[in-house]
Amino acid sequence: MNDNDIVLRVEDIHKSFGGIEVLRGVSFDVRRGETKVFIGPSGTGKSTLLRCINQLTPPDRGRVWLDGEEVTNSGARINHFRQKIGMVFQNFFLFDHLTAVKNVELALLKVRGMSKAEAREKALTELRQVGMEDWAEHYPAELSGGQAQRVSIARALAMDPDVILFDEPTSALDPELTREVLEVMKKLAKNGMTMLVVTHEMGFACSVANEVLFMENGVVAEQGSPDLLLNDPRFTRMKDFIGRIDSRMSD
């Protein structure tokens, strides 16, 4: 594997909140076009890890590199890197006072400095990608959760990111809405978008992920292809965890 393939490098990330160490040294490399899925019990630092990557939460220790440039300790240049590292949140966080299309346009206008016409065209193109073009003029409060999440994916896509971080993108959605969001994400993965996804959707993990990282107690406990983690007898932790989900669902 060529080193140039590595778009994102995460080195030894540590983070504590109030004396509790949430991340205790997490490292991994992400190749261009790869989808990595993070699975694990709640409170094991998965979301914090994503936020450490784009410095929404500055890590206590460790470094992040995007395309060979250091994201950590980058000062005001962090705003440049954040354009290149898209993020999709569990609760969408659409800008409540703006229509769907203006949600997508805003950063194009303010951060990228596009003209209004350019930004509008780009925003509509991204909304089309996620099947929300017909809802362009609607406000977030008028959208279903699934629709809102698709708009927020379009908003991240509009910045032409090198990688998109998904922080439990379907955890606030019912199964039907979950499906429509996962369909969009599958399409992105197929089109070569690099994605890091924190999720509890095992079906998505198994069908889309190039690699699954099972996190527990602030470290990556198991790491490998979905097939390997599910079938190789050397790996037990993730199977235990999923087993508990499955047995709960069959009750």
Partner: peptide
Amino acid sequence: GQMVAARSLGMTRWQAIRSV
């Protein structure tokens, strides 16, 4: 979340306050 989302898109704090 409004501020978090704005910052995650690369907006400065001031841009986020002003526009969002």
